[in-house]
């Protein structure tokens, strides 16, 4: 099933308790208040539940922007429309 970038942003907005309008692929994760230990754990659970994606420790540690999360999802077979 194909999903849009906005679908992923909406999911991230819920995970990080941010407004969806404030999120974009360019947004740096360190600038997001919810990007912390509990936020990371919640993101891992959400990606597993929604897309069946398991993140590796290296992938998580290399996340710098939302675009990095989108790239990993695409690499793991999630069909995200451009």
């Amino acid at each position: 099933m194909q999903i849009s970038i906005n679908d992923v942003l909406a999911m991230l907005a819920e995970v990080f308790e941010e407004s969806v309008e404030s999120l974009s692929p360019e947004r740096k994760l360190e600038s997001i208040g919810g990007w912390d230990s509990i936020g990371v754990l919640t993101l891992m659970a959400e990606l597993d539940d929604q897309y069946g994606v398991t993140l590796t420790t290296e992938e998580i540690q290399n996340f710098a922007t939302i675009a990095d999360i989108l790239a990993v999802l695409k690499n793991k077979g999630v069909d995200i429309a451009e």
Partner: peptide
């Protein structure tokens, strides 16, 4: 339980 499942998979 949900968070544990996700962390366990990553580990």
């Amino acid at each position: 339980d949900r968070l544990s499942k996700a962390l366990a998979k990553t580990l």
